[in-house]
Amino acid sequence: MEPTIYASLDDVTLSFGEHVILKNCSLKIVRGAITCIVGLSGAGKSTILRLLDGLIEPSSGHVYVDGHDLCHTPERDLVELRQKTSLAFQFAALLDSLTIGENVGLPLREHTALPDEKIRHIVDDALESVGLRHIYDSLPNELSGGMLKRAGFARAIVTRPELVLYDEPTTGLDPIVTNLITDTIVRLREKLGGTAVVISHDLHSIFRMADYVAMLFEGAIIAYGPREEIRTSTNPFVQQFLTGSEVGPIPV
């Protein structure tokens, strides 16, 4: 059966002044799959997540999420569309002034009329699914990097969004926490049954969790396909990236 597309970038160009971030970039995100985007640092991978979340608008082209074109949509209307999408930030971006429980429960408090006890129950459930039930009353500055990231995941999934965007979830973490987080992403996708896009440099993690892999180079997707297809790709750019070689078409 042909996979259905949940979100896509259609011929997107994004530039700030003379600095071009993305150039005629097109990408399809398959519904129900984990798509990993790889590429050099500063290639514009995180920008793709921000485009998919409607936080920035492309200079030209279109961004579709669940059939809606996010471009030129007023911020007021984006609020409703963002209920379907969630972004787990690289450094969690939890609000300093709120406890972890309050941070995770914030979207529910603001967007639903659920009673406090019910919200507490959902938040506990979300924290438990990332292995952090015991930190409800802790403040963000009391947690380690790995715990912060997982708390960020809990906030991202608490509303059970259809699309979860993970921005470098394993960067800067030790191998054990990296494995834990990779497993968490796979488990959350299975539990929620939604679609996920993951930005990462960690090849081991990527090939453990990805259904599809896309490689971004110089503002455009130069390779895209199922995980095994990319792993065995003969594309010299992909090969150089996967082997980490200094020799090849990617300038060092």
Binding site: R50, D53, L55, L78, V79, E80, R82, Q83, T85, S86, L87, F89, Q90, F91, A93, L94, L95, D96, L106, P107, E110, H111, R155
Partner: peptide, 10 residues
């Protein structure tokens, strides 16, 4: 990125 996080949560 806390402001982006707020916007991301709608």
């Amino acid at each position: 990125e806390q402001i982006d996080a707020l916007r991301s949560m709608g």
